[in-house]
């Protein structure tokens, strides 16, 4: 899922300093699961913002809404009848949701209430870790299901660099060496020969280097 975390309250207060009627919109998708932008977080943020504004002696009206998803147009339509009653919108969906909202409602300023960090997993309750960089060219079949793009700090594709020591990465001694993880797993599985396949120079055009990406499925279009 997409992992995010709340922006500092002070930053949000600056964004909305000129407004007194705000629509605060959460998302029941990824950001609900990582406790950054779901119904619960909408409630907390609304409470914090109105406390902060009351302290300044300025009242603020906040309507709390949480949509099923903000990355699908049909759910964004649900607010069309009342969105223009507000001076501004704070969306605490991921960056995709915020942008889609801004695109659909061009008359209203849309502000992001969270930072979108990465695609990751819930390692345990309260701990989220990056697992995928969405490079668009999955190589997990060659690396024991451990992503060298993500888990190797340098995104190397054919083994570790000289900075791997005792299973740790030179970038940060708390970071595990991705290639050590790959080697250990393949060894456990008796599949070290997998590593004999040389991965050629990477085609990064499927990643961010090719500009914004798009997938079109003619079979699914209406």
């Amino acid at each position: 899922m997409i992992i995010g975390e709340g922006k500092p309250i002070k930053d949000i207060l600056v964004m909305i300093k000129n407004y007194s009627k705000i629509l605060l919109i959460g998302c029941r998708g990824c950001v609900t699961v990582c406790s950054a932008g779901g119904e619960k977080e909408v409630g907390i943020l609304a409470s914090v913002l109105s406390l902060a504004r009351k302290k300044e002696g300025k009242e603020i009206e906040i309507r709390e809404v949480t949509l099923e998803r903000q990355c699908d147009p049909e759910y964004l339509e649900e607010i069309r009848s009342f969105v223009e009653d507000y001076e501004a919108v704070i969306s605490i969906a991921c960056g995709a949701g915020v942008q889609f909202m801004a695109e659909k409602y061009r008359k209203i300023p849309i502000y992001p209430g969270i930072n979108t960090n990465f695609i990751g997993v819930t390692e345990e309750q309260g701990i989220w870790v990056e697992r995928c960089q969405a490079c668009g060219n999955c190589k997990l079949h060659l690396t024991g299901g451990i992503c060298p793009i993500t888990k190797c700090s340098k995104s190397l594709l054919n083994g570790p660099c000289g900075g791997s020591a005792d299973g740790k990465c030179e970038v940060n001694p708390e970071v595990e060496c991705g290639w050590q993880l790959i080697y250990d797993l393949l060894k456990e599985q008796g599949k070290l020969d997998t590593l004999e396949v040389i991965i050629p120079i990477n085609d990064w055009s499927t990643s961010r280097d090719g500009g914004p990406r798009k997938i079109v499925r003619e079979d699914l279009k209406l």
């Binding site: 309250i9 207060l13 914090v48 902060a52 302290k55």
Partner: peptide, 8 residues
């Protein structure tokens, strides 16, 4: 922490 951040 929240209350500190917003000056309460």
């Amino acid at each position: 922490k929240i209350l500190d951040d917003i000056g309460i």
